[in-house]
């Protein structure tokens, strides 16, 4: 009896296996279907006719798709770079200084986008930016860059902070002991050791920016669709396997970045 208790395992619960299988089915079957039908020769979403790359070709030849993809990538790189820079400074300030009053508050503020519903943020940004647009007349990509940067900060912040927290403070002490000034300590010790965290933060921010529909939808001006909002718009009209092809490529890109993220953040300091 006591022995059985000690060996208690969640896998032994009745129904565990079926729930697990069902979860995986729900998670992966729709995606698998989407991928499979991107290679379908026919335009049907339910009947398989034969293997073809024609939808990929169509996607590559579609000017609009190319435009929104380039815009989305440019936006993601810019916004994630800005967010990573800000997040690095925030992480250093919240882990490498003596505790100061309001530290928890700052932690909460940095993580605000994780707590506030996206629709609320989107609405707020829409109203806020509308005012600026009217008074300055500027309608460029700046608004999207600003909105995405702010939104990506907590996602970049988390891996950087995690890395800093596991990093031995005595390494920085040792550097100072060996005549390094603050800047040299950061340049030669902290930063090289932090780099995997910074890269991880950048990649996470990149994926999040690519993926964000709600905020983009609220903030974008005419002709500023990203890949995500473009897909949403298309699907409302007609559904062709070309969308499947685009979605599959999008999925591939995300998967590659996420896998890189895991490889980078698994490296121990």
């Amino acid at each position: 009896m006591a022995r059985a208790r000690r060996n208690f395992s969640i896998t032994a619960l009745p129904g565990f296996a079926s729930i697990a299988v069902l979860t995986f089915v729900l998670l992966y079957v729709p995606i698998a279907t989407l991928v499979v039908f991107s290679f379908n020769e026919a335009a049907s979403m339910s009947r398989w006719q034969g293997f073809s790359l024609q939808w990929y070709q169509a996607a590559f030849e579609n000017r609009q798709v190319r435009d929104v993809s380039i815009r989305a990538l440019g936006l993601a790189v810019t916004a994630s770079a800005i967010a990573t820079f800000a997040a690095t400074l925030a992480a250093l300030a919240t882990t490498r200084t003596a505790k100061f009053p309001g530290q928890t508050m700052i932690y909460a503020l940095v993580n605000q986008p994780l707590m506030v519903p996206e629709v609320v943020t989107g609405t707020a940004l829409l109203i806020f930016f509308a005012g600026i647009k009217v008074s300055t007349g500027y309608t460029g990509m700046g608004y999207l860059v600003a909105a995405h940067s702010a939104f990506c900060i907590p996602f970049a912040y988390l891996p950087i902070r995690a890395r800093l927290q596991t990093m031995d403070l005595t390494l920085e002490r040792a550097a100072a002991d060996l005549y390094a000034n603050h800047f040299q300590t950061f340049r030669y010790v902290t930063l090289p050791l932090l780099l995997p965290g910074v890269l991880a933060g950048f990649m996470l921010g990149f994926v999040i920016s690519l993926d964000t529909v709600v905020i983009t939808e609220f903030v974008k001006s005419a002709g500023q669709d990203t890949l995500a909002t473009y897909m949403l718009g298309q699907i409302r009209r007609t559904v062709t396997p070309e969308m499947n092809a685009i979605a599959t490529l999008f999925l591939l890109l995300s998967a590659v970045v996420v896998v890189l993220f895991f490889i980078v953040s698994r490296k121990r300091p």
Partner: peptide, 19 residues
């Protein structure tokens, strides 16, 4: 600061720079 003192430390956990 420590960088301005003619003193060096051997730390208990060595604190060698891993990179």
């Amino acid at each position: 600061g420590p960088n301005a003192r003619p003193v060096n430390t051997v730390f208990q956990n060595y604190a060698l720079f891993p990179h």
